[in-house]
């Protein structure tokens, strides 16, 4: 069994997530080859073939061209699986490769169980095992689900890929940096976050008061930020900040993977949710089953005494 792993490269750097692909292939028991559209200086340190195409020439983000590069590697390597990280790069490129090959795609794999691929459905409230029925399959893996145990120290064998036709229907204009932060959550020892379960903007101060009573900062889940209740600099998660405070309190937050990715390394996690089955329960050290708007003021009151 062979897996072709598609690395990620951004702003001149190989992204660490690329090594998670190798961890996944190891768990699957597959022979590995990798593709990097990047630079020679950033080639991943793994044993085996690495197909290298020059990002200087083909662009860091250009899915039309990257698809052709991946397909050229598929042609040479003839893998059973073509594997991406389920990220803004991976979920964008994977279906293009899959459609061209007419290969099954299985998205956001969280586990391999008896050789079957397990994915989440309904906000991870259920799991589903999926099997491809095509000879080749395209897979994307959940970021963080396959952890890298030791720093890779292999010696890759480089194979260059050059395209005759680098035409693209899309033009990459540039990056736009993250908004400037007015709070640095990464340094906070205590974070109390508001989720959609707080109901409306007017209720956010209830959560902020608890944060204050605990000597911490206010965090938020994404919908709360998207709705304009709280500034983006307070957002925790894959598209916000990654935090690991001594105490994280999630108030009315369901526990979607993109939120968990930003806070699950916290030392101690308390979740307050009216739904006992909310996925946040999986990472919480304490789950308080209650209405946040009733429980949080009671807790804050007691702390202030």
């Amino acid at each position: 069994m062979k897996a072709l792993l598609i690395c990620e490269y951004r702003e001149g750097k190989l992204l660490d997530a690329s090594y998670e692909l190798a961890a996944f292939a190891d768990k699957l028991g597959a022979e590995k080859a990798m593709v990097l559209i990047g630079s020679e200086a950033e080639v991943p340190k793994v044993n085996g073939t690495v197909y290298l195409a020059d990002a200087g020439k083909y662009g860091e983000y250009n899915p039309d061209v990257h698809k052709k590069i991946v397909l050229a590697a598929v042609e040479r390597e003839n893998p059973d699986y073509i594997v991406f990280v389920h990220s803004s790069y991976g979920w964008d490129l994977a279906p293009r490769v899959a459609a061209t090959l007419k290969a099954a795609q299985i998205s956001e794999i969280v586990n391999i169980v008896d050789g079957k691929f397990e994915v989440g459905i309904c906000n991870s409230k259920l799991r589903r095992n999926v099997t491809p029925t095509t000879g080749k399959a395209v897979l994307t893996i959940q970021a963080g689900a396959f952890s890298v145990t030791d720093a890779s120290q292999g010696v890759p064998q480089l194979e260059r890929i050059d395209l005759a036709d680098g035409a693209s229907s899309l033009e990459f204009v540039g990056y736009e940096p993250a908004e400037k932060k007015d709070v640095d959550l990464t340094r906070a020892e205590v974070i109390v976050s508001a989720g959609r379960g707080v109901g409306k903007k007017e209720n956010v101060p209830v959560i902020a008061s608890l944060a204050k009573a605990l000597g911490g900062e206010l965090g938020a889940s994404r919908p709360v930020v998207d709705a304009g209740w709280v500034e983006h600099s307070h957002q925790v998660g894959t598209t916000g900040q990654t935090v690991s405070p001594k105490l994280y309190v999630a108030c009315g937050i369901s526990g979607a993977i993109q939120h968990l990715a930003g806070m699950k390394k916290s030392d101690f996690i308390v979740a307050i949710n009216k739904d006992k089955d909310a996925p946040i329960g999986e990472v919480a050290d304490v789950l308080v089953v209650a209405d946040v708007l009733q429980f949080v003021p009671a807790l804050t009151g007691m702390l202030q005494k």
Binding site: K102, A103, A104, Q105, I106, K116, G120, I121, S124, K125, L126, R127, R128, N129, V130, T131, P132, T133, T134, A137, K276, P279, G281, E282, V283, A284, D285, V286, L287, V288, V289, A290, Q294, F295, A298
Partner: peptide, 23 residues
């Protein structure tokens, strides 16, 4: 191109304390 072979609840990691009842 793909088939679902099972749908099931996630394995509960557990370990967490669940509090219910009076506020």
């Amino acid at each position: 191109l793909a088939t679902t072979t099972s749908v099931h609840p996630p394995a509960r990691k557990g370990g967490g304390i669940v509090l219910e009842g009076d506020l």
